[in-house]
Nucleic acid binder design. Structure first.
Lengths: 336, 336
DNA sequence: GTGAAAGCGCTAACAA
DNA sequence: TTGTTAGCGCTTTCAC
């Protein structure tokens, strides 16, 4: 494999000059530069980023800590869409991505800091970890630049990209209230998720705004899973016969709720309206197509990459970015 | 950041000894070893993989060349599922993944070899590139260990993981024939895909096996896209009123075909049976749920990672692996 | 069982 | 404008 040493020898100059020419410095004679470039091309040279990273203490690499990459999460294209957004933006800005898997026990043996330092990543993007994940604590204590997705916590070295989940939930509930619904239950995710906390907040605030009662028994967790959601919905509707609408904190859970309704012989939306969250691909294909809160997931990813790289290169003052949500009305909601 | 030098100083030994102790060599006194390990832990040491990679000429990194990571491909969870499989297996075996994006022009400036060599990846896994992609030629000419997904070409350093697409297509057609269909059209992908070639082969062979005529006009390309498929299906069915079944080389295209049928006022499956390919998540949710050829996509990914790592560490003789397919019968096919 | 020294490929003072 | 030299953090002969 060709090194700058080889080029230096072939071009009859020193390695320093080669390095400078290759890196586009201006203090090198145009002629020598051309010569060096020619030799480099001829010898089919590729720079060794490991060596460069070693001396520069920069790797032009972003570490990706993603929890939703296991078999179970395949239905949910949220993770993938975020990934796509990160990938395109990062690569457009000259950074490569390195994937850390937080599921396998193998990786869990290492701490977040170890993961990042071993690979000498310049920064990290973290998606899908829970509030109580030990990694989160570490991330916040570490000084490695990091962007959190959907976790609105900021430190000197940690920023975040998220949507306004309170507002998103409010849009959903507003829609249901406008349709005349008064007994609105909620299938939330789980305690480990900030988005759950916020969507619940939006739900409560909007009900309160309309002087509708907030009933604790009407709020249950569905673990962001279809099956769990199905079973809790079943129970919820059995115990509250007058419930006329359901707000689910994710489309996947709305799918479960749909199944439960079907089994109970309830027609959606005539007997009960359902609003989901996320606007996953399935949302427009299921029966009935889901009214839901859409997020520009791809944009969340690309904003995250953009923010992190800005943090690495320009240290911006604002480390928080919000991406829009919008209510998408389909056929799972109707007038009461 | 702690280095082995720091450890050496703190433990009162040489860097050599530290290196040996940390790497679990046996020619180091148990006591010194324990001392070194203790110091390392206390100083919160993380090895620098860049430095190690530089001297060892191995990076324990696998390069991922994936084309299906753009906005358009989000519906299709094939790519993501492959990714998940690769990720879990690679990380279980101690390898990290580095993502190369082949879409952005930025990356296209570099050749495959450059991409791999710059990052000093030990090997690469390539998914979703076309037969005529210049990268493919390079991959086959290069001696970088590589596993191709769904491209059955082998060289000394290149292996592949795929399914038997001829057989898969045959299963689909067999099913349709058993249901009494005789006028079976095919929406294929495009010329750039090996899987298209093979699925077409399976289609033709099975028809021939039953002495059914193979009609060139009945075979059209849908570019693996929903919209394209919809428009070609429209035309196909208009021009061939007696067509009673359709075999689509992907579920996404089957979705398009479904739409076309709907617009033409044809009921699936009563007027026309449709079989897809891939068993994407949507397949079981669309209307009617699709009969399709399922692939263990996750397994394709994990096999690819496993094969590549075997190639890196043990150089196996067999560089080809096949993953099963199976016919999944849902409601888009019925007796004629 | 342990250490000194060389070197992986690169960048960056500092000199010339 | 160019070259000399040191050093990034690590592994690995080779000698003791």
């Amino acid at each position: 494999m060709t090194t700058i040493k080889d080029i230096a020898k072939a071009a009859g100059v020193s390695v320093t000059t080669v390095s400078r020419a290759l890196n586009g410095y201006f203090d090198v004679n145009e002629k020598t530069k051309q010569k060096i470039l020619a030799v480099a091309k001829e010898l089919n040279y590729s720079p060794n980023t490991l060596a460069r990273g070693l001396v520069m203490k920069k790797s032009k690499t972003i570490g990706l800590l993603v929890s939703g990459m296991s078999k179970e999460n395949i239905k949910d294209n949220f993770t993938f869409e975020v990934l796509c957004g990160i990938n395109e933006t990062a690569s457009a800005l000259g950074y490569d991505l390195i994937l850390f898997n937080t599921n396998t026990t193998k990786q869990r043996e290492k701490t977040y800091t170890q993961l990042c330092r071993e690979r000498r990543v310049d920064g990290a993007i973290v998606q899908g970890i829970r509030k109580d994940d030990p990694y989160l604590k570490e991330i916040l204590e570490s000084d490695i630049p990091c962007v959190l997705i959907d976790i609105p916590i900021q430190t000197d070295s940690v920023g975040y990209v998220t949507t306004d989940n309170v507002l998103g939930a409010k849009k959903a509930i507003e829609h249901l209230i406008q349709l005349g619904h008064k007994n609105i239950g909620m299938i939330n995710g789980h305690e480990g998720a900030y988005v759950s906390e916020e969507r619940l907040k939006g739900y409560i605030e909007k009900l309160t705004e309309y002087n509708l009662p907030v009933n604790k028994e009407w709020i249950v967790d569905g673990a962001f899973e279809e099956a769990t959601s199905e079973s809790v919905t079943y129970k919820l509707l059995e115990e509250n016969k007058d419930m006329d609408a359901l707000f689910c904190a994710s489309d996947v859970m709305a799918l479960g709720a749909l199944k439960a309704c079907h089994k109970l012989g309830k027609t959606v939306p005539d007997d009960i309206s359902i609003v989901g969250y996320d606007n996953i691909t399935l949302a427009s294909y299921c029966l009935p197509p889901l009214t839901t809160i859409g997020q520009e997931v791809y944009k969340i990813g690309s904003e995250a990459a953009d923010l992190l790289i800005k943090m690495l290169e320009e240290d911006p003052t604002d480390l928080c970015r919000y991406v829009d949500t919008n209510l998408i009305i389909r056929d799972s909601t109707t007038k009461n």
